[in-house]
Nucleic acid binder design. Structure first.
Lengths: 118, 118
DNA sequence: CGGTATCCCTGCGGATACTG
DNA sequence: CAGTATCCGCAGGGATACCG
């Protein structure tokens, strides 16, 4: 019987759990679609994320090496974010999931409603 | 500026948020790797999921039409689970993510540690 | 065997206010 | 502009007990 927790605490689960939070994937595909963006640009693009959670999400992605953060010593301050190479290699897989979701969400929503009527 | 919330409450986010929970992807790839499985088999394969959460996860996947649940009128009862066709089409994308995680987790973990020393 | 039913707790993430 | 700091509510999920 095949399983998927090689060592007890599985690094794959660790990595994937990061992407499974509410905003990470959205931030990544937004950065991929628009290239380098300022903090405020990302915030405008993803309207319903709070400033706090956008900061937290970006910092986590940065510390994982998926996003690069560049601070310019200007007044007012300017901070730019872009994907790293590692972050870029993740994009196709996220796009794959998004594409699948787009293709199948009608089927899924229908099926879900059916069962709700029970 | 490209964004990703077509209608305000985006079905893509809805669908993906389901897969982003703690156990769904794990259950799906386990079922894919082993074919039809009984409840207890899944539980043995994914050791650290509670009975409650395994039930909840399977029921959600069933109501979304990704997993099929078959109950046999026997004593003691037997319940078998397998992927549906729709569920099957999702597998390659999950495998893609898992593959990426396996390839890149060393880089990620290193990067993460560097930043923690700060 | 394959579940429910309860209770409970952690921690994700929102709201708001303040700052270099 | 791009953040911290603080507080707090809620839902995801664990532990335990019981059931057809």
């Amino acid at each position: 019987m095949k399983n998927f927790h090689p060592t007890g605490n599985c690094p794959v689960r660790d990595v994937l759990s990061r992407l499974g939070d509410k905003w990470s994937m959205l931030v990544l595909i937004t950065l991929n679609a628009n290239g380098t963006m300022r903090f405020s640009d990302i915030h405008k693009t993803i309207e319903d994320v709070s400033q706090r959670m956008l900061t937290v999400t970006l910092r986590t992605l940065e510390s994982d090496g998926l996003v690069e953060r560049k601070v310019y010593a200007e007044v007012p301050p300017r901070v730019e974010y872009c994907l790293t190479d590692t972050g870029g290699t993740l994009i196709p897989h996220i796009e794959g999931l998004v594409g699948w979701a787009l293709e199948n969400m009608d089927t899924i929503l229908d099926h879900r409603q059916m069962n709700q009527q029970h």
